[in-house]
Design a protein around this nucleic acid. Structure first.
Lengths: 221, 221
DNA sequence: GCGCTAATGTACGAACTAGTACGTTAGCTA
DNA sequence: TAGCTAACGTACTAGTTCGTACATTAGCGC
């Protein structure tokens, strides 16, 4: 505390624009996810970075644009993960179940992203609307779902005639709720939806639900 | 603007503690739902009330307690609605579908409540935890679900062995997501989940999903 | 009618916070 | 190695925002 004045630079370069920007984005992601847009403090983000507040404004322009950049990167990560989906070699039922499970896993592994989405919805998705990058990038997952669904429906395995977007909404609902609302749900009902011991239980429940919906006997008209 | 000095009091009493408190809660609910906890402005709430900021602190103590009071009242409304549930005269399948539909309707009719819940989750449900009223009030809906579920499982109609809390989570997921995430979902996928023209579509989809899950043939072990 | 207290209004302050003016330097290039 | 610019740091400000000290009054109980 008294004798340390940080003489060594363990990481080499002092000036590294890309690294500085990435570090700001990392910390900003945490801070926005922690406290919401208005609750997040630019000073706090700066303090937890190896650089200063000046740099945030230098690279991003302002708090609003910083949040947009955070969202853009977060959605980029999702898209990347979705592009690695490899389930189409399975039969439609197994493929959908696997897809649901991967969606489930991804939500669980990225609670910060879930929080950012919640926050963005509180603000009417105005940052997404203002972003060129996020304008209308569908998701790769949607194409995958579309193809599986077509195969399943054609073969007669799937009786429901949902489209891909609605099925995606159904799967996401369950995964999203479990992570996003775990605090209020836990406080009100005394059950931790993200309890590791219950993970498999909920993962199976999701798959069962989606498959049951897609393959149900439709006795009615 | 020049000649009006509000001579008439259309509503009678000038001093009415209950009314003042209720008015503050009404406006606060809107303001918190609009902007989130940190985005909400105490001055703004006061300005949109017939009273002053002083009264907010007089009756509620502070911003934090005001938000808690808003949550308490909002959850109270839910509980009231759930107490009016009257579906147990139906057979289990119809009863669950009806319950799901009523949950669906309630979410749609109370978007502000959904937003408050999202906001409270961003803050780790700390206000619920700090509230005596909200400590551990289960929901009346849960009891209803429990009874329907028991009847359906006993009669063999329901093959799934979910418990009431998990089924409640499943139903709520879909309803909640549709309202809470409509902005980001709409911006990203170009589909408005709350489009009135699609209301019946999603309502049916929810019912189909839940019933399919509960009544599916479980061929496996 | 009188007094007492709950209820209310005004004006202000202390602290915080997004954003900026100004100054400095690393390190590439010619 | 001289100079130029992207990258970076410091110190400050203007405006906002929660909260409060102080002053006032309506209206109930006696």
């Amino acid at each position: 505390m008294t004798s340390v004045d940080e003489p060594a630079r363990p990481n080499g370069r002092i000036r590294d624009a890309a690294r500085t920007q990435a570090e700001i984005l990392d910390v900003a992601t945490q801070e926005f996810a922690r406290a919401g847009y208005d609750g997040a403090r630019v000073d706090e983000i700066a303090a937890r970075t190896r650089t200063t507040k000046r740099m945030i404004y230098y690279y991003f322009g302002g708090k609003e644009q910083l949040f947009t950049a955070v969202l853009e990167r977060a959605y980029g990560v999702i898209r990347e993960a979705e592009q690695k989906l490899d389930v189409e070699h399975l039969d439609p039922v197994a493929a959908i179940r696997r897809l649901a499970e991967l969606t489930f896993d991804h939500h669980e592994q990225h609670p910060d992203f879930i929080r950012l989405v919640s926050i963005e919805n509180i603000h009417g998705a105005e940052h997404i609307a203002a972003s060129e990058k996020l304008g209308r990038i569908g998701s790769p997952a949607l194409d995958v779902i579309r193809r599986i669904l077509a195969a399943g429906q054609e073969s007669g395995l799937f009786t429901a005639d949902v489209d891909a977007v609605d099925l995606h909404a159904m799967i996401s609902s369950f995964c999203f709720f479990r992570v996003a609302n775990r605090h209020t749900f836990g406080a009100l009902f005394g059950r931790d939806l993200v309890d590791p011991a219950q993970r498999e239980h909920y993962r199976t429940m999701l798959g069962d639900m989606v498959i049951a919906y897609l393959t149900a006997d439709r006795a009615t008209d």
